[in-house]
């Protein structure tokens, strides 16, 4: 395998951006990520995005997005209808083939244009589940309920996760939800999606993120502190949530094993936990110890721009390695009902 590193990252978020269209939203993020990479746009070998037509309400969202990417002269380019963390995976594969030495990855989506929780329902079985319209939050709440029923997790455990995330988000300019709050205060607020409170549910967020990665021979030249990708893997679970053991995340565990995450030793883990209980499930599946700081950015509970949010987890770990704050971190991305599909990426400094 070739050594590949993240060398640049940029993001933008908003609660509800009604000024800019997608292209206007993405363009500055891509420009900043490219500028930060130290590589000229047309020297970047591969371009790939992650986006979703159902977020924007019509087909071919990524075609518009390409207008923000500076794709002339023609570029080697691809697109996944997935969170852009998987676009990064495809870019990493492209570098492994030897065909290219660097890649620009971007993800974007404006979740606020519609009732996003309702739209995500369409990921479920189109014959027996989707026609009942359980939302993304309803399905997550069922998983939380199953977890509570097992008896090892309590409301307070969730509130502790939510409170810590909200406090940490105060230091993150891209968080759209943050507050200095403790678990007791959150427990005093109403249960809105039993057994979940609003504070257990990631906020609807508009956003875009871009990352540049490069093979060692390029990364060393342009980046003082690259974040080396020491392992990356992703796995998927069965779609039928009843057939899964909802008190764990088998696909996260497997992706973690394959990526080498179970050796531990992480200063930071940025987990794409869209619900408070997701964090508990993910920490257990990945065997993260108490020494690992979980979601110091505030995580997805602070800002969760779908299609970019998983990529942002990788970006947040890179940012801390690049700043010299930490030596080794883990990033995680998810999509699909009740943590169906999971990606784990391990990053290290020199």
């Amino acid at each position: 395998m070739r050594d590949v590193a993240v060398i640049s990252f940029a993001q933008e978020t908003a609660v509800k951006d009604r000024e800019r269209n997608e292209v206007e939203f993405i363009s500055p993020v891509v420009r900043d990520a490219v500028a930060g990479s130290g590589i000229a746009r047309h020297d970047i070998g591969f371009t790939i995005s992650g986006s979703c037509d159902y977020l924007s309400g019509g087909p071919f969202t990524f075609v518009q997005g390409l207008d923000a990417a500076g794709a002339w002269p023609p570029v080697k380019e691809s697109h996944v209808e997935m969170d852009a963390a998987w676009a990064l995976y495809e870019a990493w594969v492209a570098i492994q083939t030897g065909d290219v030495d660097s890649a620009l990855i971007y993800g974007f989506g404006k979740s606020s244009l519609t009732d996003i929780h309702e739209v995500i329902t369409l990921q479920t079985d189109p014959y027996t589940v989707a026609p009942l319209w359980p939302s993304m939050v309803d399905l997550a709440a069922l998983q939380a309920s199953a977890l509570f029923a097992e008896g090892d997790v309590t409301e307070r455990d969730l509130a502790e996760v939510a409170a810590r995330s909200r406090r940490d988000a105060c230091a993150n300019p891209f968080a759209v939800v943050s507050e200095e709050v403790d678990a007791d205060t959150l427990l005093g607020r109403p249960v809105t999606h039993a057994p979940l409170r609003d504070s257990d549910i990631a906020p609807v967020t508009d956003g875009a993120a871009a990352i540049v990665i490069a093979a060692a021979e390029v990364a060393h030249d342009v980046c003082a502190r690259p974040a080396w990708i020491r392992g990356i893997d992703h796995r998927v679970d069965a779609p039928h949530i009843g057939v899964r053991d909802l008190t764990t995340s088998a696909s996260t565990r497997r992706a973690g094993e394959e990526a080498g995450a179970l050796q531990g030793g992480f200063d930071v883990a940025e987990l794409h936990a869209q619900f408070s209980h997701d964090e508990l499930l993910l920490r257990a599946a990945l065997g993260l110890s108490a020494e690992t700081a979980i979601n110091p950015s505030g995580g997805a509970l602070g800002a969760n721009p779908l299609m970019a949010s998983g990529l942002i987890r990788i970006g947040e770990v890179f940012r801390r390695i690049n700043a010299g704050e930490i030596g080794r971190g883990l990033a995680h991305a998810t999509q699909g009902p009740c943590l169906q599909q999971n990606l784990v990426c391990i990053l290290e400094g020199e």
């Binding site: 979703c52 159902y54 996944v80 209808e81 997935m82 998987w86 995976y89 495809e90 739209v119 995500i120 369409l122 990921q123 479920t124 079985d125 189109p126 989707a130 893997d233 992703h234 796995r235 998927v236 679970d237 069965a238 779609p239 039928h240 088998a250 696909s251 497997r254 999509q335 699909g336 009902p337 169906q340 599909q341």
Partner: peptide, 21 residues
């Protein structure tokens, strides 16, 4: 069907494996 590969993961024998769309 949104990201139909998620609904198709078991139909295509992809459970426990990497799946890309």
């Amino acid at each position: 069907v949104l990201m139909p590969e998620l609904y198709l993961a078991d139909a295509l024998g992809a459970v426990g494996k990497p799946l890309l769309r």
